[in-house]
Amino acid sequence: MKDLIKVGMADLNIAKRPSILTTLGLGSCVGIALYDKIYKIAGLAHIMLPSSTQIKNNTNIAKFADTAIVQLIKQMEQNGASKCNMVAKLAGGAQMFSFGRTSEIMRIGERNAQASKEMLTNMSIPIIAEDTGGNHGRTIELYTEDGNLLVKTIGHGSRYI
């Protein structure tokens, strides 16, 4: 029996083979999936905001792209993974409402995806696949067996990336 480990909003977790990490209903949030292909250790974060430095109340490190990625790498390394084996996949960062509004609220998905990419690049982790943007929600499952990421949607199909 393979464990299905749930990651909530503003939450992160890691798993070893053969468990599956999942996060449900990503909207403007971004799911950051890291995978050590040699040791088969995976990590998944569900971030809500791009940067911890712009927010005063930043105690929850899983909430921000920058701090969540650092923490995810740390926890994976503590469990035997190695950063140089890691690859990343991203999903989410949608714009759920289509108002022609100018406010930054509406572009938060795009900014979340952008910030995640910048942080991963800074940490020298290659981004090998992504399914970001658009205007629909996503549920993702990360398989520790092979690092496949299943992206499920309502009305936009499902696919592995």
């Binding site: 909003m9 403007s28 759920m96 629909h136 929600g137």
Partner: peptide
Amino acid sequence: DMAGAILSV
């Protein structure tokens, strides 16, 4: 859409 995705806003 999905509850989580809409609630994320």
